[in-house]
Simulated scan of single mutants.
Amino acid sequence: MALHMNLKEYEEKKKTLRLSCECGWEGNASEAYGELHEAVLDFECPKCNNMLLIVNLIVDPEKYFNWKKKKK
């Protein structure tokens, strides 16, 4: 199961954060496959593509959802 973090947590830990996968791969987030989406940043194992980390990029949910409503 993937680890979940908010953006602040990730920023504080990203230099020392080690990810590991069931397949045996270990490394830091910069060595994993990262993909940026509208509200999250996710990292997959470069060996087997298992999801390892999901970072919630929404700092203020109220502002985000108000922005989404206006965007429609």
Score class of each variant (00 low, 15 high):
M1I: 06
A2E: 07
A2Y: 05
A2K: 10
L3Q: 10
H4K: 15
H4C: 06
M5R: 13
M5N: 07
L7S: 06
L7N: 05
K8Q: 14
E9G: 13
Y10S: 06
Y10V: 05
Y10L: 00
Y10K: 02
Y10F: 15
E11I: 10
E11C: 02
E12M: 07
K13I: 04
K13Y: 11
K13T: 12
K13W: 09
K14N: 08
K15H: 13
K15I: 01
L17F: 13
L17Q: 14
R18E: 07
R18I: 00
L19A: 05
L19E: 03
L19S: 07
S20I: 06
C21R: 08
E22V: 09
E22H: 14
C23A: 04
C23H: 06
C23R: 03
C23K: 06
G24C: 02
G24S: 01
G24D: 03
W25I: 03
G27R: 10
G27H: 12
G27W: 14
G27D: 11
N28C: 13
N28W: 11
N28D: 15
N28T: 13
A29M: 00
S30C: 05
S30K: 13
E31A: 00
E31W: 02
E31Y: 00
E31M: 04
E31D: 01
E31I: 03
A32W: 11
A32R: 10
Y33H: 04
Y33E: 13
G34D: 05
E35N: 12
E35F: 10
E35Q: 10
E35P: 04
E35R: 15
E35Y: 13
H37G: 00
H37N: 11
E38V: 07
E38A: 03
A39R: 14
A39K: 15
V40Q: 08
V40G: 04
L41Q: 12
L41S: 12
D42H: 08
D42K: 12
D42W: 07
E44H: 15
C45P: 05
C45F: 07
P46W: 02
P46Y: 08
K47A: 08
K47H: 12
K47L: 05
K47Y: 00
K47D: 10
C48E: 03
N49S: 02
N49M: 02
M51K: 10
M51P: 05
M51D: 01
M51C: 04
L52Q: 03
L53G: 03
I54V: 15
I54P: 03
V55T: 09
N56S: 09
N56K: 11
L57P: 08
L57H: 07
I58F: 07
I58Y: 10
I58V: 15
V59T: 11
V59M: 01
D60W: 09
D60H: 13
P61T: 08
P61W: 00
E62F: 11
K63N: 14
K63G: 05
Y64C: 04
Y64M: 02
Y64Q: 01
F65G: 05
F65Q: 09
F65L: 06
N66T: 00
N66G: 08
N66I: 01
N66W: 03
K68A: 12
K68L: 13
K68M: 14
K68R: 15
K68C: 12
K69Q: 14
K70E: 15
K71C: 05
K72Y: 13
K72I: 09
K72A: 12
K72N: 14
K72E: 14
K72V: 04
